[in-house]
């Protein structure tokens, strides 16, 4: 596998992680997973009534896709809720992977980074592979790594906002401070150019949901994002030029016709 993405010792061809929520239909979700060429999809747990088979039907669709699942603790507001949800997810989805969300603010869905670190410590202690949804804060990142996280997932902008990168300096600093840690941009991307931009910064992968599921044509957008991620990664590996403040002619100056000052 050339230039594989490695997360907790598992390797993937694709650098696009895909959320499964808010698609127009299960069929379109299945097509979008295929079009995105993703190897990892996020899933959740929600209350279900007796006699309903909705959860199992969804789970069957995901299993058929062949993608690895990354359950989340979306919506949890306390350490206790997040830990219990992770434990339930491990049993249902039969995986130690958990995308850890501890939400601290209703308007921005900004993570409660204090609760996040505490929950991460508990879950790592229980053998989970924790993918923490975090801000781009360097100190929080350090604390999460100390807690035993081996992947970090900073936001680009609030969940579902589609705003793209709010703080490119912060994301660049995070990348520079933790060169060996897999970093996945999670949340806030709206267009394939946003995904390409963070991949060009050297981010290892992106996690997308709303930008694809709520697009006019989610399947076509999944394909577009796959291309954006691929282009950004290729550009990063190709080492982009350093920006300059002044122009530099790309066409050779020497030998220009009508140049009276030279032979």
């Amino acid at each position: 596998m050339e230039d594989a993405l490695t997360l907790y010792d598992a390797k993937f061809d694709s650098r696009l992680l895909l959320g499964t929520a808010r698609y127009p239909s299960p069929a379109i979700l299945a097509q979008a997973i295929h079009a995105a060429r993703t190897g990892i999809v996020t899933v959740s747990l929600r209350r279900e009534a007796g006699g309903s088979r909705a959860g199992e039907s969804f789970w069957a669709l995901i299993r058929e896709s062949g993608a690895k699942v990354l359950p989340n603790t979306a919506g949890c507001r306390t350490v206790k809720e997040a830990v219990t949800t992770a434990q339930m997810a491990r049993e249902v989805f039969a995986t130690d992977w958990i995308k850890l969300e501890v939400i601290g603010d209703e308007d921005t869905l900004q993570p409660d980074v204090f609760g996040l670190v505490e929950a991460a410590r508990v879950l790592v202690g229980e053998g989970f592979c924790v993918f923490p949804y975090m801000t781009e804060d360097l100190v929080v990142a350090e604390k999460l790594l100390e807690a035993g996280c081996r992947v970090l997932m900073p936001w680009a902008a609030p969940i579902g906002s589609g705003r793209g990168v709010n703080n490119i300096f912060g994301l660049r600093a995070l990348r520079a401070h933790f060169p060996q840690t897999p970093l996945v941009v999670d949340a806030g991307l709206g267009a394939p150019s946003h995904a390409a931009a963070v991949m060009e910064l050297g981010y290892d992968a992106v996690l997308l949901n709303t930008a694809i599921s709520r697009a006019g044509d989610p399947v076509a957008m999944a394909r577009a994002f796959a291309l954006g991620v691929e282009a950004g990664r290729a550009a990063f590996l190709a080492k982009p030029m350093t920006p300059r403040d002044f122009a530099r002619p790309s066409t050779p100056v020497i030998g220009r016709a009508f140049d009276e000052g030279a032979a």
């Binding site: 979700l29 996020t42 899933v43 279900e48 959860g55 995901i62 339930m88 949901n209």
Partner: peptide, 29 residues
């Protein structure tokens, strides 16, 4: 608010005013 494993449900008593959560797979981001 405490997880109860499937295999432990038979041995898990219920009491007045207990609060039970029953969840299933769902789409998520």
């Amino acid at each position: 608010r405490e997880f109860v494993r499937a295999k432990d449900r038979v041995e898990t008593p219920l009491r007045e005013n207990d609060s039970v959560e029953i969840v299933a797979p769902k789409q998520g981001g």
